[in-house]
Design a protein around this nucleic acid. Structure first.
Lengths: 146, 146
DNA sequence: TTGAACCTTATAGTCGCTGTAAGGTTCATC
DNA sequence: GATGAACCTTACAGCGACTATAAGGTTCAA
C-alpha cells in the first residue's frame, strides 16, 4: 500500500502519517525504487491505535512511549491503564471547569442583556467592558475549540 | 508602574503583556529615558478586561476587535454580546463532546480493568492496544489540558 | 563597586498538525 | 511518444498564545 491508500483507510492525512514517522510513532517505511513509501496491513492497526489514543486524549509523546514499550517486548498494558486513568481524572477536572465557566458566562450574559448599547464618552472602555473586568475570575480558562 | 508591577498586579507575565502590546491589544507604552515601559493605572483595568475575556473563551483577535471599537468611540457592547453568545454555544458543544469522551474512556477503562499485564509475543502490539484500536471512535476529540 | 533584581530586544520552541512550493512518478489516454 | 491528472517526495512556513532562552543594559541597596 502507498501512503494515500493508508490515509484513505485510516481517515488520517498522508502528511499526518509522515509526521508520525518523523516523530518516531511509526518505523521508517520501506520504499519503492523511486522513493515511495510502502506499507503492510499491520500499519493500519498501528495507526488505528494511534488515532484512538489521540481521541482518548493522549499526547503523541505518551503514545510514542507506549508503542516503544510494546515494540521492545515489555508490556505496556499497565502503563496504558495508568495513562488513561490519569486522562480520565484530568478530563473530569476539565469538564467541571468548563461547566463553571459556562455558568459564569450565562450569568454574565443575562446581566448585560438589558444594558444600553452606547459608547462611553469618557474615553474609557464602555460600561459593559468595565463590568466584564469586574467579574471575578472563576474557572481556570477556556480552551476554544479547534 | 513598570511592567513587573503590572504583571504582579494583574497575574499576567511581563512577556504576555509585551506580547499583547505587539499584537495591538495595548497601546505602545510610554518609556523612561532608559527605555523601560511605564504604565498608568488604566492599563490595569484594560488588562483585567483582556484576562477576563480570555477566560470567557475569546481569542486575542476577537478581544482586539472589541477594544479597537471601544477605543474609536463606537459601542462594542452589542458585539461583545454576540461574541459571548457564540462562545456560550460553542462551550455547550464542547462540554457535550467532552462528556461523551469521558464516558467512552470510562467504558474502555472498565473493559480493560481485568486484562493480564503481559507482553504480546507475536511481535504485534499487545492485546490491550488491539482492543483500543477496535473501539469505535466516539467524540470529536480530546483537548489535553495545559 | 559589587551584585541582585529588574528591564530591554530578538529569536526559538511548544503541540499537532495543515498548507504551500517545487519538483519527481505513474498511468491512462490521445 | 506526448500530454495531463493524480499521485508521490522533501522542505519549510504557519497556526494560537504564549514561554523560554540568550545577551545585554539599568537601578538600587549594601
Amino acid at each position: 500500500m502507498k501512503i494515500g491508500e493508508v490515509a484513505a483507510r485510516t481517515g488520517l492525512t498522508a502528511q499526518a502519517i509522515r509526521y508520525y514517522e518523523r516523530e518516531g510513532l511509526l518505523p521508517r517505511a520501506n520504499r519503492t525504487h523511486t522513493g515511495y513509501r510502502l506499507y503492510g496491513p499491520e500499519t493500519l492497526s498501528r495507526l488505528a491505535f494511534i488515532k484512538q489514543a489521540r481521541q482518548l486524549g493522549l499526547s503523541l509523546e505518551e503514545i510514542r512511549r507506549v508503542l516503544d514499550m510494546s515494540d521492545s517486548g515489555r508490556a505496556p498494558c499497565g502503563q496504558v491503564r495508568a495513562l488513561l486513568a490519569g486522562k480520565l481524572e484530568h478530563l473530569d477536572r476539565t469538564i467541571a471547569e468548563l461547566v463553571t465557566l459556562r455558568d459564569q458566562l450565562r450569568r454574565f450574559l443575562s446581566k448585560i442583556a438589558g444594558m444600553p448599547d452606547q459608547a462611553d464618552t469618557s474615553g474609557h472602555i464602555c460600561r459593559l467592558i468595565q463590568v466584564a473586568a469586574a467579574v471575578p475570575p472563576g474557572a481556570a480558562g477556556a480552551r476554544p475549540g479547534r
